[in-house]
Design a protein around this nucleic acid. Structure first.
Lengths: 147, 147
DNA sequence: AGCAGCTTTGAGAATCAGTATCATCTGGCC
DNA sequence: GGCCAGATGATACTGATTCTCAAAGCTGCT
């Protein structure tokens, strides 16, 4: 996937620029994140890597995610179930939000320009400089209601 | 504050209707929530009550918050710092969202009709029945940038 | 290649929010 | 006043996240 590779390179470059060195753990975590298209929790990441035979200590997983979040290379997503999830943040600021089905747990990404405009306007009105924003919609998806 | 009292009564009535009994812990928690105008975490609630000399077991705090959330009498708010916060939910569905300043930690509530419309539309477009939605804007407030 | 000084890594301990258990207490009813 | 289902709270537990520290890996130098 072209986008993911772009992100992977971008992330590597930013980290180098921030003065940190490359290491197995970091490369592995970044590679795994790049291969996913929606959010993953630290545990999922850890387990996923282990099942692929390239284990990374859980402490390193959190450490890397932390560094990435610090540099805004990943976006932390909170679906209100008590576990933090992370997904790559693209350099052009492109991003999406999430719809969560309360019955089946399905998570669906979406993005919407008017919504973004409304958010930007609200922040501006209040004198806030917007750094990041999270939108999570909870409800039930068509499939669950049909069932 | 008139609104808070209204909520307190409404909550009491709903709980009674749901078939549960009144008890010290519940009344205390509801009273405390009503006295606040924005979100509180369970720990804050617990500590706040203790410092007022009317301690309630932490288990009861969570239990009561759970019940209230179940009946949609409180909203669970997640500010992405790993702790859940709660605030009274008014019967007419009126609610607000939050702006969080990353420097000073200030949390400021806001509401915005166009934003709400955008959210409703997005959910509809995807075939979701919207039950609840969370919007959290992270940035830096005017005061912090000025400093 | 060998070495020094640095960073990264990961196992395990520690912390912390939230949940489960269970003996005790209590509100509402006879 | 006494009964008893539901409410309470101390405590134990779980699961996510963070901390600690010794071992391992880079990178530049000789």
């Amino acid at each position: 996937m072209a986008t993911s590779t772009a992100w992977e390179e971008y992330a590597g470059a930013e980290l180098r620029r921030a003065g940190s060195r490359t290491g197995v753990a970091r490369n592995t975590v970044i590679d795994y994140l790049a291969s996913r298209d929606c959010c993953v929790s630290a545990q999922e990441l850890h387990d996923g890597l282990r099942s692929e035979g390239r284990s990374v200590g859980i402490a390193s997983v959190y450490r890397v995610l932390d560094q990435l979040a610090e540099l805004r290379l990943v976006h932390r997503v909170d679906l209100a179930d008590g576990v933090a999830r992370f997904e790559p943040a693209l350099p052009d600021g492109e991003h999406h939000h999430h719809l969560v089905c309360g019955s089946c747990g399905r998570v669906e990404p979406f993005d919407d320009a008017p919504l973004e405009r409304a958010l930007t306007r609200v922040a501006g009105d209040r004198g806030f400089t917007l750094v990041q924003h999270d939108v999570v919609l909870h409800g039930s998806c068509g499939d669950c209601r049909a069932a």
